[in-house]
């Protein structure tokens, strides 16, 4: 396969309508979250480090991301994912 011409347009997944807002939690926020739900960090749902949103949000392996979903039932729903390799 030959290389396709680069149009210089970088696609940002976070700007797409189907992608909810992703943000990295600070350490304190992670601590509060884990104590609120009484779970270990490893028990959180996962997100891969190769996920386009992880790169766009500049998250690292081990970070916890808060995802603000628009939910049909709850209006706004928060979801948390831990970045794994």
């Amino acid at each position: 396969m030959k290389e396709k011409e680069n149009t210089g347009r970088e696609f940002n997944p976070l700007k797409h309508r189907m992608v909810p807002n992703h943000e990295i939690l600070s350490e304190d926020e992670v601590k509060n979250l884990l104590s609120e739900y009484n779970v270990e960090k490893e028990q959180l749902p996962k997100i891969r480090a190769i996920d386009p949103t992880v790169a766009a949000a500049k998250a690292k392996v081990g970070d916890v991301m808060r995802i603000t979903r628009e939910s049909k039932t709850a209006g706004i729903a928060y979801y948390y994912r831990m970045v794994i390799a």
Binding site: P13, H16, M18, R48, D51, P52, T53, V54
Partner: peptide, 14 residues
């Protein structure tokens, strides 16, 4: 394809 281009959350929505 959505998963590859836009990530896991968009895939869930899809």
């Amino acid at each position: 394809e959505i998963f590859e281009v836009m990530g896991i959350e968009a895939a869930r929505q899809a």
